[in-house]
Design a binder for these strands. Structure first.
Lengths: 153, 153
DNA sequence: CCCGATGTTCAACCACGTTGACCATTTGGA
DNA sequence: TCCAAATGGTCAACGTGGTTGAACATCGGG
């Protein structure tokens, strides 16, 4: 490689990968294995109240069939439960279990730890500038909200 | 979502996805379709001289079989060629074709365009702070070099 | 009361990666 | 010098996680 600055897109790919790898390593050290990156997004989405497969599908930017499979996998791992719809028998609400909340808390802890380490290298100011830059640009390009997250390749 | 700051990892995933989507859209507008994100990394790696499947494999962090398949696909698209090894009959060096170089140039153009647009939203200073922050942190965490790029999910 | 929209699931398929075995060539040490 | 290990590559079987397409039951508004 002998050219100018590295494109941001490439750096983002590396940074995302880096953080996710570390997250999984450290969760494994705490006894959490058998989980995939997408789990976190489902847990976050369902954290503040039940969601359903369709909502998850649009959040993740995949088909509802794929979202449903994902929820099944997570249910098998005891992270969420699919109850019966209260007022609408079509819906199968996804709720986070106690175990799911523990994973969520552990992941948040690790993320804080990692961002702390980043701050140790480049300083807290630059970390926050980066967070703010990303947030502002993404919101500007997606009508005020943050875009869905989905596999890129 | 009702918690504190969005984790950097999540923002990186969104930003990467966002840029790659836009890249592909704009390349398509310029007549380039039928290509995948990984193509770019192969072209960059082979740009300054022939490389081989094994080197690509370690760059991309995949098996050499997967790298080989990727090169085959790109060869079929006329972006690279696999010649016969000059001094080592085992090697099948990968060289970029003229068409490959045109794609590389187009992609660079679009990346500049996109980063220009980012600068329009948050200012050039913050864009460069972000680039520098990422570069410094990644180098610090990977022994001075940038890490491989590979699918995360 | 019925027809369209909605939430879900089943089944077949496909893209892209993996593991494992194997072949040809090169290299280096006994 | 020669043979064994290392290296670059390929073939084949398989797994994961996504897709499309169809079907099903339930809900809601005319």
């Amino acid at each position: 490689m002998s050219d100018g600055p590295v494109p941001l897109a490439r750096l983002f790919a590396m940074a995302f990968r880096d953080l996710v790898d570390d997250l999984h390593t450290r969760l494994a050290e705490r006894g959490w294995d058998d989980h995939r990156p997408a789990f976190g997004f489902v847990l976050v989405a369902a954290r503040d109240g039940p969601t359903d497969a369709t909502a998850l599908a649009s959040l993740l930017g995949v088909t509802k069939q794929a979202a449903s499979k994902l929820v099944d996998t997570m249910a098998a791992a005891g992270l969420v439960e699919r109850s019966a719809g209260a007022h609408d028998a079509r819906r199968r609400p996804v709720v986070v279990t106690a175990r799911g909340r523990r994973l969520l808390a552990a992941a948040e802890e690790v993320y804080e730890e990692l961002e702390e380490e980043w701050a140790g290298v480049v300083g807290r100011r630059d970390v926050e500038t980066t967070r703010s830059t990303l947030t502002r640009v993404l919101r500007a390009r997606h009508g005020g909200g943050l875009p869905p997250i989905r596999p890129t390749w």
